[in-house]
């Protein structure tokens, strides 16, 4: 398969997974608005000063319409991933629009909704817009490589900060995180000290091993499979559902980065 065909396949996969992630984001945003918490907590009169010039974009009507806008754009992105003819810029515009919507939500609530997953979704959307826009092949490839770099950085940085902490090596840190009430970790999750120690070392090893994904396309695939299981486990244990969605959309970029590295020698 040629590099161009592989790039096309990877970006289509990323488009489809990002579209599904954004549909979930839209549904959650809709549910949050319906519950009244947005109106009660993130009040316009409280945030108007902080918004500054952005307040024009934070009007109630725009916020209320956002889930519908996101669902429509995500549907277009999904369609773009499935269309044979990719000459138009529908996918690029849909991705760019969705990136703006992620930014809008972050400004509306003065922060991220779901930690780093919002950042990863924003990065994937913005880079997908660039990767599928009518720009040079080099820029398109660079956009996907940027996503891969952020994925690698996300694991490496997280691994390095854990590796520096003695409590992470002996399982105490993981035990403490499991006990934090905010995460509501299910009671059935086993917490034996030995298991937590093994799991902790496993997490550090997995995160620090991220560069292995670049050794070959096979290692990228294997690392992606382990990474996906890791995010699934995080969702089950800590309830961080959006991390599965955001990283699922980003992980195919690792494969392409490994492929590109080999193609260029």
């Amino acid at each position: 398969m040629s590099l161009a065909t592989e790039f096309d396949t990877v970006t289509r996969l990323m488009q489809a997974l990002t579209a599904l992630a954004m549909i979930v984001v839209a549904l959650e945003w809709q549910a949050m608005q319906a519950s009244g918490v947005l109106r009660d907590v993130w009040r316009e009169e409280t945030l108007r000063g902080w918004w500054g010039w952005r307040r024009l974009l934070m009007r109630d009507g725009i916020t209320r319409a956002m889930p519908w806008v996101q669902t429509s754009l995500a549907s277009l992105l999904l369609l773009a991933a499935m269309l044979d003819d990719r000459r138009d810029s529908m996918g690029a515009m849909a991705a760019a629009g969705l990136a703006v919507s992620v930014w809008h939500t972050a400004v509306r609530v003065r922060g991220t909704m779901n930690g780093g997953s919002d950042g990863m979704l924003f990065i994937v959307l913005l880079m997908l817009a660039l990767a599928t826009a009518p720009v040079s092949t080099r820029v398109q490839h660079a956009a996907v490589v940027f996503v891969a770099a952020q994925v690698l950085l996300s694991y490496l940085r997280a691994g390095l900060v854990k590796a520096r902490e003695r409590d992470w090596w002996n399982g105490t840190a993981l035990s403490a995180f499991l006990a934090i009430p905010a995460y509501g970790v299910p009671r059935w999750i086993p917490r034996s000290p030995l298991l937590l120690r093994v799991a902790s070392i496993g997490v550090i090893a997995f995160e620090l091993a991220a560069p292995i994904a670049l050794v070959s396309t096979s290692s990228a695939l294997m690392y992606t499979a382990v990474a996906w299981c890791f995010h699934l486990a995080t969702a089950v244990v800590f309830g961080l559902n959006r991390f599965v969605l955001a990283w699922s959309a980003a992980l195919p970029a690792l494969w392409f980065a490994a492929r590109l590295l080999h193609a260029t020698g």
Partner: peptide
């Protein structure tokens, strides 16, 4: 695991 609006709201409040 995939759709959890209450959890997302909870995390946003916590933030």
């Amino acid at each position: 695991v995939l759709y959890h609006p209450e959890g997302t709201t909870h995390l946003a409040l916590h933030s």
